[in-house]
Amino acid sequence: MHAHPSISQIEEEIVEEFSLFDNWEDKYEYIIDMGKKLPPLDEMHKTEDNKIRGCQSAVWMVSSYSEGRVHYNADSDAMIVKGLISMLVRVLSGQKAEDIRSAELKFIEKIDMSSHLAQTRSNGLRAMVKQMKLDATVWAMKEQGNQG
């Protein structure tokens, strides 16, 4: 069994994939395609509690924890946001809690998608990152509690 690639390794992969595109259409079509491929979240998880507050599109996320690693499942009713969160899931899901908490996620800027992190209240990507890190913190604390 080979080691799970690190956050920065996966970020590099994504940046490389995006370097192939020289126009916005291809880039967004790729994001939309990734959104379509994101496994849908079971309807039972699409609750208010699992909802990440964004102004225009709904984003739901659930996380689980096993063997020191946090796993995420997420979904959105908007396709581009779904594509963006699928990249976050790809980068962060299966990583160690402490690595998730300290991840800087520079790939978003490198693939020129940082406008989606802007505080325009129109999307939940920033809130999504925050929630993923928060979940990682909570899981790590729970584990410490169990060990203590």
């Binding site: 967004y28 225009q56 599109s57 009713d77 908007a78 396709m79 581009i80 946001v81 129109s122």
Partner: peptide, 10 residues
């Protein structure tokens, strides 16, 4: 079948 947010972004 198209979310308004996707329309706005594109």
């Amino acid at each position: 079948n198209i979310h308004t947010q996707d329309i706005a972004i594109l």
